[in-house]
Simulated assay, not measured.
Amino acid sequence: MGFDRVLGNLDLNLLVTLDALLRERNVTRAAEQLGSSQPAVSAALARLRRHFGDELLHRAGNRYELTPLAVQLAVRTAPALAGVRRVFDTSSQFDPSTVEREFTVVVSDYAAAVLGPVAARLMSERAPGARLRLQQTTPHAVDHADETLRATDGLVLPHGFLADIPHTDLYEDRWVCVVATDSPAASADLTLGQLADLAWVALYHRPTAFAPALQQLRMLGVEPRVEIVVDNFLPMPFLVAGTDRVALMQERLARRVADAAGIRVMACPFEAVPVAEAFWWHPMYRADPAHVWLRELFAEAGRTLDPDAGVSGTLMTGIGG
């Protein structure tokens, strides 16, 4: 059956009902969420079962469970709904002061902590009816960037991971080393020899997911002795504090948490390539007025960041020192 014929036989409202049924796993609760009647949702479930040739929900004792096909569908319905909503949110005119919609941007915890507050403030001032959703990034989201960008409004990620995807440059930062304030390594400038000897807290530590500066260190012949692997940047300073471990972090974030975590921010003993953060977006949004506005807002947020906290500032060898 052709794609157009499939769409012609379906009501897009069924997608909304399918999403509710797969999340609630109960006709009554799905009806309540949708503001519909139970008979109407039951009828929609019957249509969905005929379409997929599958029960989707089957009774197990006093509750319903998803069939294997329904488990697959549950992963796809939310992104599909988001895509449909973005299609119908598109307009030749865009007035941020009156818009009521949600913008979803995929970010690391680092970008959420550093850029997020500025972007949120600008959006609150200029589009009070809009909502900003900062969705945590993952290696899968980056490895499947085209799929990610079809289901969201953008991805904040440094250069070096993606190619042939439109982007808007935001700001620069630099890599620093962090050690505990009472670590012997904090008493003087770090050396490459120390980085080879110290235990490391590393991000991801996978072939396709790594901090670029850590990969650069390997290219200099220093193989970090990784003791702890984390999926986010924010835990790193607290896993370094009170130990002889070391970690690589972005300077803006490291300085923000240094006092609370009990760490010292140290200059890297090698020329680490700066972090060049960018807002990546799908080509289908190129001329979308709402998306153009969003990209410009994030670019302004990047320019608004304190210039003394990034690559243009003078790095201190220690907080308070």
Results as ranks from 00 to 15, higher is better:
residue 178 V to S: 02
residue 56 L to V: 15
residue 161 F to P: 05
residue 156 V to F: 07
residue 44 A to S: 15
residue 87 V to N: 03
residue 79 P to W: 01
residue 23 R to A: 06
residue 50 R to P: 11
residue 60 A to I: 08
residue 121 R to T: 07
residue 85 R to N: 04
residue 92 S to C: 10
residue 256 R to H: 07
residue 204 Y to H: 13
residue 62 N to F: 03
residue 198 L to C: 06
residue 241 A to E: 05
residue 146 D to G: 11
residue 273 V to K: 00
residue 209 A to H: 05
residue 305 L to V: 12
residue 247 A to C: 13
residue 121 R to S: 12
residue 307 P to F: 00
residue 23 R to P: 02
residue 153 D to M: 04
residue 277 E to T: 14
residue 135 Q to Y: 01
residue 58 H to P: 01
residue 279 F to V: 06
residue 172 E to T: 15
residue 312 S to H: 15
residue 195 L to H: 06
residue 316 M to H: 08
residue 119 A to F: 07
residue 130 A to C: 07
residue 48 L to C: 13
residue 168 T to F: 00
residue 295 R to E: 01
residue 7 L to G: 10
residue 77 T to L: 09
residue 284 M to R: 13
residue 128 P to V: 08
residue 169 D to K: 00
residue 279 F to D: 00
residue 71 V to I: 08
residue 149 L to E: 04
residue 248 L to H: 04
residue 282 H to D: 09
residue 43 A to R: 13
residue 169 D to Q: 06
residue 56 L to W: 10
residue 219 M to Q: 13
residue 107 V to M: 01
residue 277 E to F: 00
residue 128 P to I: 04
residue 289 P to Y: 09
residue 228 I to K: 10
residue 66 L to Q: 06
residue 24 E to V: 05
residue 111 A to T: 06
residue 80 A to H: 07
residue 105 V to E: 02
residue 249 M to P: 15
residue 43 A to M: 07
residue 81 L to G: 05
residue 98 T to D: 11
residue 35 G to L: 03
residue 1 M to K: 10
residue 315 L to K: 12
residue 23 R to W: 03
residue 307 P to L: 03
residue 161 F to C: 03
residue 91 S to F: 01
residue 6 V to G: 03
residue 83 G to A: 14
residue 308 D to L: 09
residue 206 R to N: 05
residue 235 P to E: 01
residue 150 R to G: 08
residue 196 A to M: 11
residue 25 R to C: 13
residue 177 C to V: 12
residue 215 Q to A: 12
residue 229 V to L: 04
residue 254 A to W: 05
residue 260 A to E: 14
residue 279 F to K: 00
residue 188 A to Q: 14
residue 268 C to L: 08
residue 120 A to W: 00
residue 78 A to C: 04
residue 121 R to K: 03
residue 103 F to R: 04
residue 172 E to C: 10
residue 107 V to K: 01
residue 309 A to L: 14
residue 213 A to Y: 06
residue 298 F to T: 05
residue 63 R to F: 02
residue 82 A to T: 15
residue 193 G to E: 13
residue 294 L to H: 11
residue 69 L to C: 07
residue 254 A to R: 10
residue 22 L to P: 14
residue 155 L to T: 14
residue 108 S to W: 00
residue 40 A to R: 12
residue 111 A to F: 00
residue 106 V to E: 02
residue 230 V to G: 08
residue 160 G to H: 02
residue 221 G to P: 14
residue 237 P to G: 08
residue 86 R to F: 05
residue 34 L to G: 07
residue 149 L to G: 05
residue 105 V to F: 05
residue 77 T to V: 15
residue 26 N to C: 11
residue 154 G to L: 14
residue 79 P to K: 05
residue 166 P to M: 02
residue 125 E to C: 00
residue 246 V to F: 04
residue 75 V to D: 02
